[in-house]
Measured scan of single mutants.
Amino acid sequence: NKFNKEMRNAYWEILHLPNLNEEQKNAFIQSLYDDPSQSANLLAEAKKLNDAQA
């Protein structure tokens, strides 16, 4: 299933973003579980936030 793979990839990438705190990571990961079809968008948002907090 495409979403499972996308979701897993997004999950791991978000988990390893160095500039997000636990609360931010948890919020993105919760959103992933709530709507796996948004994995790519959530990952993009997480990366933007990560870069902004660098």
Rank of each mutant, 00 (worst) to 15 (best):
E22H: 14
A44T: 08
P36T: 05
E6N: 02
Q30R: 13
D51Y: 12
N21A: 08
F28W: 06
H16V: 03
N50E: 05
L15I: 11
H16D: 03
E22M: 11
F28G: 02
Q24Y: 05
E45S: 12
A46V: 07
K47G: 04
D34Q: 13
S37F: 10
Y11P: 00
D34W: 08
E13A: 14
E13Y: 07
S37D: 07
A52Q: 09
H16R: 07
Y11N: 02
A44K: 12
N26K: 13
L17H: 04
L20F: 04
A44Q: 12
E23H: 12
L43F: 03
Q24W: 03
N1D: 14
E23I: 11
K25V: 12
Y33W: 08
N21W: 11
N19I: 09
N41G: 08
L43P: 02
Q53F: 10
K25Q: 06
K2R: 10
K5D: 13
Y33K: 03
R8Q: 13
N1P: 15
K47L: 06
E22V: 13
I29R: 06
N26G: 09
Y33G: 02
I14F: 04
Q38T: 11
A40D: 07
P36G: 11
Q38R: 09
A52Y: 12
Y11V: 07
L42A: 06
R8H: 09
N9E: 13
A54D: 11
S31Q: 10
M7P: 00
L17A: 07
N4A: 02
K47I: 13
Y33N: 01
I29G: 15
A10Y: 01
F28R: 05
D34Y: 04
N1H: 09
D35E: 09
E23V: 05
E6M: 05
N4P: 15
N50F: 02
N9P: 01
N26H: 10
N50Q: 13
E22I: 10
W12A: 02
L32Q: 03
M7H: 02
Q38D: 06
Q38S: 10
K25M: 11
N1A: 01
Q38G: 07
D34A: 10
L17M: 07
